[in-house]
Amino acid sequence: MSLPGLPNLLALAALVAATALAPLSVGLLLGVDRRVTAAMQLRAGPPILQPWYDLTKLATKTSLPVDRLAASLLVAHVVLAAGAVALVLAGGDLIAAVLVMGAARVLFILAAGAVESPYAQLGASRELILLLISEPLLLLVAIAYGGVAGSFSAAAVAAAQAPVLTLPTLGLTLGVLLAIALRKSPFDLATSHHAHQELVKGSTTEMAGFWLALAEVGHWYETAFVLVLIALASLAAPLVGIGLVAATYTVAIVADNTLPRATWRSALWIGWGIGGTAAVIALVTGRLFGAGGL
């Protein structure tokens, strides 16, 4: 969101700080997520700060030699992903932000595919499918927001009052997107903290130490992006927003613990079936009852 009352330099500093803090808060969320999952499986979970420990450890490990092309792609991936989050935080254009995030993810896929390991390459091609599921959904969400606010700028969306019907359906789409961003499902794409998977770690198989930490940060930015989008809808009604996030998250984690994870084929259907339908409903209702036609 832009801060019009303050001098520009201060606003810029606030923006940088917010962008830097975004993934850290995602780390905290992931820590809670691991605790809750462990509790649901009747285990004692790790400390809440565990994702931070993991990240620090990875970043400070002795780096193994890594493919130079993959390394530069990874760096670019993180920069672009952070840029997309910053763009939304600065109140910029949502469509542009979604496209930048898409570009960031493409760079990650290229980085994963740049190495010779067949696991990484298969992982990369599945990551691409995941991108094909989530990117159109993100675009639909952005367009639905545009319908609500009459403008694609994040600042306008934050200020607009979303119609009652639009919020839950948008929440559903964003919930699906969150599940994908947290890599809960589909299982066989998952770069999740789950060792028993046929592609080992899929796209991150060949990454280690600092480079894995970079991939992890980029991944946290992706999650932060979805969370910021959720927050946008709820700025006008914070309680509704928090409730929506809590509800979708609960559904995701209960499903994760009572059902087997989806394969990428079923994820395609579920993602598009639920997320897509909900997004289209949100789009239509937002257009009809929102702040004004485009």
């Binding site: 004692a44 790790p46 420990y53 060792a195 998977q197 080992v200 770690k201 991150t204």
Partner: peptide, 22 residues
Amino acid sequence: LMPRFSAERFGVINVGDPRQGD
């Protein structure tokens, strides 16, 4: 890693990839 011993409370994760292990 199972509930009775809950190794994850020490931050233990069973990774399949030696490049990522400690």
